[in-house]
């Protein structure tokens, strides 16, 4: 039924001289099955916002509704919320701890109190979904490459069968190929399962072709919230807050400014090339 944020404010260290207003009056609706890219640079409040969705942080004021229920109600089951809204943090090193990959992925479902059989079935299914090769299942998670660790970390949350998956900068520190592989895997996961996915990134270019909607965060507020095409149309304002639209946006706009008749809404190189070829 969706997640609803109603005038959410978060003040860090309230009532101290170091108080900081990290989230300012956020109102949002995330419908089921949407793939949302959350963009902003360090300190924009994007990671803080994500930790509100599963109740890890509690808003200073405002309400959050998950499937119509207020998660701040006294008798609300937070543990259940955390299994339905899965959050994968940026560094897989912060969660991997078991002696082998498979046991590590079992940690989540086991915490839900599932029996051994169901736990292992889910772990197996989750590892298959993230595209990890079978021969790695019984290796130590610490011997894996960066991209593989990332997959195991995602599987560790997927095994809890969440309806919403939040990924906090899943591509940080990966090389370009590793980054593309993870993003494609996530997209595939979304189309196959129809899950709601929120993907945090600081690069518009990386997520543009995968997501349905982009949420641009700046200084604790939502600056833009629209389809990638419509967000990139504001490339000048994005520039002002230190975020860049994909390079193709600049090229097409530059051509248009030179008096050429091109549509500037392309977001991938293929689309841009098609558009430019129309001139010739």
């Amino acid at each position: 039924m969706a997640i609803l944020l109603d005038h959410v404010n978060y003040i860090y260290n309230e009532d101290t001289p170091m108080a900081a207003h990290v989230l300012k009056d956020i109102c949002l609706e995330i419908p089921d099955g949407q793939f949302v890219g959350v963009i902003g640079h360090t300190g924009s409040g994007k990671s803080t916002l994500m930790q509100h969705f599963n109740g890890l942080l509690r808003a200073t004021s405002g309400h959050i509704y998950y499937n119509g229920e207020d998660i701040y109600k006294d008798d609300y089951d937070m543990k259940k919320l955390r299994s339905k809204v899965g959050l994968v943090f940026q560094y897989p090193e912060h969660q991997l701890f078991e002696i082998d990959v498979f046991s590590d992925v079992c940690f989540g479902p086991r915490n839900l109190g599932l029996d051994k059989r169901e736990t292992e079935l889910r772990a197996y299914d989750a590892l298959r979904r993230v595209g990890l090769e079978d021969e790695l299942f019984y290796q130590s998670p610490f011997d894996l490459s960066g991209g593989q660790k990332r997959r195991v970390a995602i599987a560790g949350v997927l095994a809890m069968k969440p309806d919403v998956l939040i990924l906090d900068e899943p591509t940080a520190g990966l090389d370009p190929k590793g980054r593309d592989e993870i993003l494609q895997q996530v997209k595939k996961l979304q189309t196959e399962t129809g899950m709601t996915i929120l993907l945090v990134s600081h690069s518009m270019e990386d997520v543009a072709e995968y997501v349905d909607r982009i949420l641009v965060m700046n200084r604790g507020s939502v600056l833009f919230d629209d389809t990638p095409r419509n967000v990139f149309a504001h490339y000048r304002e994005l520039e002002e807050v230190g975020l860049a639209a994909p390079q193709v946006t600049y090229i097409l706009n530059e051509l248009r400014n030179n008096g050429l008749d091109v549509d500037t809404s392309a977001i991938t190189t293929k689309e841009a090339a098609d558009e430019i070829m129309k001139l010739f």
Partner: peptide
Amino acid sequence: KAQIARGADFESGNLFKRAKAMVPLLVP
């Protein structure tokens, strides 16, 4: 936070249970 998001519980249970719950925190 990463482990709480995976359903870890650092607060309830007896002493032994709590000590065991620290493993996913201490190893990383």
